[in-house]
Simulated assay, not measured.
Amino acid sequence: MASSSPADPSMATEAPQVAVTRERKLNPNLQEELPKPYLARALVAVDPSHPKGTEGRDPRGMSVLQQHAAFFDRNGDGVIHPWETFKGLRAIGCSFPVSLFFAFFINLALSYPTQPGWLPSPLLSIHIKNIHKGKHGSDSETYDTEGRFVPSKFDAVFSKYGQTHPNALTQDELNLMLKANRNMYDFVGWVAASAEWKLLYNVAKDKDGLLQRETVRGVFDGSLFERLQHDKKSS
């Protein structure tokens, strides 16, 4: 078993003179719970409870980040227009004004980086095949720069910040994580990360005001969006 004690300094995750390493703990036993947690998964979002990813989900050859985005491609043509983003947000339970604002905000931010050429799109389209180019800084790094899912980074979200409940985040813990992940002078990343996580919290928190681990895992591969859409239709 991996140890973080001074007796085994090569495996230590805490530095005695750095208090924040004690406050934001890592899981030294993750490799025993999940094979090769350091290995970024291209097709599925895995954790110890879901070592094969979301049950019954077909990745269709898409990266985990592409699967996340594909929910908003309402006509399945590989391109997301602002009105499709709007429809997707409405489908998961966002209000009309929130959906309208985020449809513009998301497409404005991601359209140009994902274009196949140098010219911007007058319709603010997002191309899913290039969605990895829209990855911003100051995030949890659960997606790597190619859009793969990194299990160890996902686990760290909860081992570091889930202090009240080991598999959930309170609103205060979420805010602490957002502040801790900020990169210096990365104002765009600060805003984007805050908007994404706070929108997720507002639409997917449970009755106790907690953002559950499985809820967060589901947002990375897009399966949460499908569940929220189904629940909204059912109700």
Rank of each mutant, 00 (worst) to 15 (best):
M1A: 11
A2I: 11
S3Y: 06
S3N: 12
S4I: 02
S5A: 05
S5V: 01
S5Q: 03
M11K: 08
E14H: 04
E14A: 12
A15S: 06
Q17N: 02
V18D: 07
V20R: 08
R22T: 10
R22A: 13
E23D: 08
E23W: 09
E23G: 06
N27W: 02
P28T: 04
N29E: 15
L34N: 05
P37G: 00
R41M: 07
V44L: 12
V44T: 15
V46H: 03
D47V: 02
D47H: 03
P51H: 07
P51V: 14
E55F: 04
M62V: 13
S63R: 15
V64H: 02
Q66Y: 15
Q67K: 11
A70D: 10
F71Q: 11
F72L: 09
N75S: 05
N75A: 06
G76I: 08
G76N: 10
H81G: 08
F86Y: 15
F86N: 06
K87W: 08
G88P: 03
G88S: 07
G88F: 03
G93T: 15
S99Y: 10
F102N: 13
A103T: 12
A103N: 09
A103K: 06
F105M: 07
L108Q: 08
L110C: 09
Q115C: 13
P116G: 14
P116T: 15
G117T: 14
S121K: 10
S121T: 14
L123D: 09
S125V: 04
H127A: 13
I128G: 12
N130M: 08
K133D: 08
S138H: 02
Y143D: 07
D144W: 06
T145C: 11
R148N: 14
F149N: 04
P151N: 14
S152K: 12
S152T: 14
S152H: 07
K153W: 04
F154D: 03
F154Y: 12
D155Y: 00
D155R: 02
A156P: 01
F158Q: 00
F158K: 01
S159Q: 04
K160Q: 13
T164V: 13
H165W: 01
N167G: 10
L169H: 00
T170F: 02
D172S: 14
N175P: 00
N175L: 12
N181K: 07
M184H: 11
M184S: 11
Y185K: 15
F187I: 10
V188P: 01
W190T: 04
V191K: 03
V191Q: 04
S194K: 03
W197T: 01
K198F: 11
L200I: 13
K205P: 02
K207T: 09
D208P: 00
D208W: 01
G209T: 09
L210G: 07
Q212L: 14
E214G: 02
F220Y: 10
G222Y: 08
G222M: 12
S223I: 11
L224T: 07
F225Y: 15
R227V: 15
R227D: 14
H230S: 13
H230W: 08
K232R: 10
K233Q: 05
K233L: 06
S235R: 11
S235H: 09
